[in-house]
Computed example of a mutant assay.
Amino acid sequence: MVAYRAEQRVRLAALRAGWLTQTFVHWSFPVEAVQTLAPEPLAVDEYEGAGWVGLTPFAMADVRLPGVPAKTPGLPTLPETSLRTYVRHPSSGRRGAGGASYRLVVRPGAPIERPTERDVWLTSRWRAYTRRLGMLRETPVEHEPWPLASAGVEVLEETLVASAGFSAPSGDPVMHFSEEVRHVRLGASLPARRRPSLPESGPLCRSVPAGPDR
């Protein structure tokens, strides 16, 4: 299952920050189309029989090392965008989230007081998988639950999905918006190792430069 709250504590953070104005734009794809692009040994994590690809622009604020107060003057705010899909490490059961140009203008809607199972599945992931120098690495994440709102698209022009090897998305995307989570703790990025089975998952991520409009 995917948890609404962080599934584990990041007791020793490698980096701390806040994530602001996060937009989640998701499309469903056939599982086999997503699996061909996932590095071994990751398996696509499915919802309603489909794999999902998400475009997630946000601002990373007050980026700092552990022990540095969030109110320290001069801390950077960095725009970032991830193109991600959702995967499971087959031996450990850990789930995760695993970039091109875009122009996105969204219209935030009403707060989502009671997130549905799909709302949580698409947004609440507590580790990221990335491949660096040929090695699969896992980064744990902890923060307060997303305060989600609905969202509508005013402008969406993107080439990121195709640049990653997918066909052009069909149909309207599933949209969410979140104003901020302020207490983000990122653990050290370590090689993904075999562990006893755990009910956890996360995104397979690729970061790309943020577009001029979000």
Rank of each mutant, 00 (worst) to 15 (best):
V34I: 08
Q35F: 00
Q35N: 06
T36D: 10
L37V: 04
L37H: 00
L37I: 08
P39R: 06
P39H: 07
P41Q: 07
L42G: 03
A43G: 05
V44E: 03
V44Q: 03
E46M: 14
E46A: 15
Y47Q: 07
E48D: 15
G49C: 07
G49V: 05
G49Q: 05
A50W: 05
A50D: 05
V53I: 09
V53G: 00
V53N: 00
V53E: 01
T56F: 04
T56M: 13
A61N: 06
D62W: 02
D62K: 11
V63T: 09
L65T: 13
L65H: 12
L65R: 15
P66Q: 08
G67V: 02
G67P: 01
G67Q: 04
G67T: 05
V68Y: 05
V68P: 05
P69R: 11
A70I: 08
K71D: 15
K71Y: 13
T72N: 12
P73V: 13
P73R: 10
G74A: 13
G74K: 09
G74Q: 11
P76K: 08
T77G: 08
T77V: 14
T77Q: 14
L78I: 15
P79C: 07
E80T: 14
S82M: 13
L83C: 10
L83S: 03
L83Y: 05
L83V: 15
R84W: 06
T85P: 00
T85I: 02
T85D: 02
H89A: 06
P90E: 06
S91N: 11
S92W: 05
G93T: 06
R95V: 11
G96E: 04
A97E: 01
G98E: 11
G98R: 08
A100E: 12
S101T: 15
Y102I: 04
L104S: 01
V105N: 03
R107Y: 01
R107W: 04
R107D: 12
R107S: 11
R107E: 13
G109C: 04
A110I: 13
I112F: 01
E113Q: 14
R114D: 12
P115I: 05
E117W: 10
E117I: 12
R118Y: 01
D119W: 05
D119P: 03
V120D: 00
V120L: 12
W121I: 05
S124D: 14
S124P: 00
S124N: 15
R125D: 06
W126Q: 08
W126P: 01
R127A: 12
A128W: 13
A128H: 14
Y129W: 12
T130H: 09
R131E: 15
R132T: 13
G134N: 11
G134L: 09
G134I: 10
L136V: 08
L136N: 04
L136T: 07
R137W: 05
R137H: 13
R137K: 14
E138M: 10
T139Q: 09
T139P: 00
T139M: 07
P140Y: 02
P140T: 04
E142C: 07
H143N: 06
E144R: 13
P145I: 01
P145D: 07
W146S: 03
